[in-house]
Amino acid sequence: MRLNVPIIVKVVYLILSLSFLLLLMYDYNDYSLRVYSIKHLKVEVKGIDVYVENHDFFLNLTYSLSNGGVKCLEVSMITYKTYFGSEVARVYNENFYGSLLVVKPSQKLLRTIIVKVPGFKLKRNLVNGTVRVSILFNVYIRTRFGNTPVSFQCVKILNFSKP
């Protein structure tokens, strides 16, 4: 039996190109849904509290990280920039490069961090026993472009009496 080479080549071409088309559809879908999920990532601050322990000032922050999208998101780093008034009090990083923090769809992670803050900055920004605390979150998510930061901000007025 003689093989009809041109027909075989055409069939191989069709199969290969259709496979590429399917892969393209899958990849585009993945990319598009990941961007959609990043848009629906939310950081909600549940509570901020400043307390004193052995003459040191600590900021206790509880927040939730929720994924309202449809794809898992991998968080590689979170940076917290804390302001007292308009002054930067402390910049703190949480690094997850070793084991990424995975946020599954519809998952809500409740996290608590405690960071030491300089007391003199808190004292000089006290106005009538209150201090305006604002926290700027930068959540770095692994995407096809690399680690992409997504920013969230939270502002709260805290009552604080000078110790």
Binding site: Y13, L14, L16, S17, L18, F20, L21, L24, D27, R144
Partner: peptide, 20 residues
Amino acid sequence: MVNVLYISSLTYVLFQQAFI
């Protein structure tokens, strides 16, 4: 038809490269 399929294959390869 052949060219459309070729474009789809090329688009897949370029889509991979666009992010790198």
